[in-house]
């Protein structure tokens, strides 16, 4: 397979990547509601990093594939690697139960680290495909891109509300057990 195939399919690949990022955020929020485990500050920072990655992908969909947008994805994913790797190291000692319940044998921050690394690989491959142009005018979204963007915007609003209810207008405790703005 020639690498330029990726470039020719960049629009729907970026839409799928944005859907994957949104699905990660929706899954974390669903877990928060169903298992009743509130996200810690480092977990919330990882969510912010996923959102920043999503913004770069959304820009690719809206304005075309540009190195600046890929740079946003790379820096955002690196920010996520910092937060998730820090949390992995916090709980790496033998006998440490980790934070929260594991999913398929791994804690959420370990999954986050793997997903951020996968996003970096994806971004590297897209840059290698040399698909970037120079036009930055807004373009009409395809139905799949429009759906991905709406799903992404929805989970952003949900996260703003959820984090405000959990932390209020201040810092979050290291091990949150209740929503500060809910009785």
């Amino acid at each position: 397979m020639k690498i330029s195939v990726l470039g020719r399919n960049a629009r729907w690949l970026d839409a799928l990547a944005l859907l994957a990022v949104s699905a990660t955020l929706w899954f974390a929020f669903g877990w928060q509601l169903l298992v009743k485990e509130l996200p810690c500050p480092l977990c919330l920072l990882q969510r912010v990093a996923f959102i920043m990655v999503g913004i770069g992908l959304l820009m690719n969909l809206r304005f075309g594939n540009r190195p600046l947008h890929q740079g946003i994805v790379v820096l955002s994913a690196l920010a996520g690697v910092v937060a998730s790797a820090r949390q992995v190291l916090l709980h790496i000692a033998p006998g440490d139960p980790g934070f929260g319940s594991p999913f398929l044998g791994l804690h959420f921050y370990t999954w986050a680290l793997l997903i951020f690394l996968a996003l970096l690989v994806y971004c590297g491959l897209m840059l290698m495909s040399d698909a970037a142009g120079s036009d930055t005018a807004p373009r009409k979204l395809t139905p799949l891109a429009r759906y991905a963007a709406l799903v992404f915007l929805a989970i952003l609003v949900v996260n703003v509300v959820s984090t405000t209810l959990e932390c209020g207008l201040g810092p979050c405790p290291d091990n949150p057990t209740r929503y500060q703005w809910l009785p």
Binding site: I51, I55, F152, T164, G170, C172
Partner: peptide, 18 residues
Amino acid sequence: MIMMLPFVTSLLSAWFAW
């Protein structure tokens, strides 16, 4: 430190992209 602040600014960024 306002924990929800980066969520608000990222929402603004995504909204302007949209």
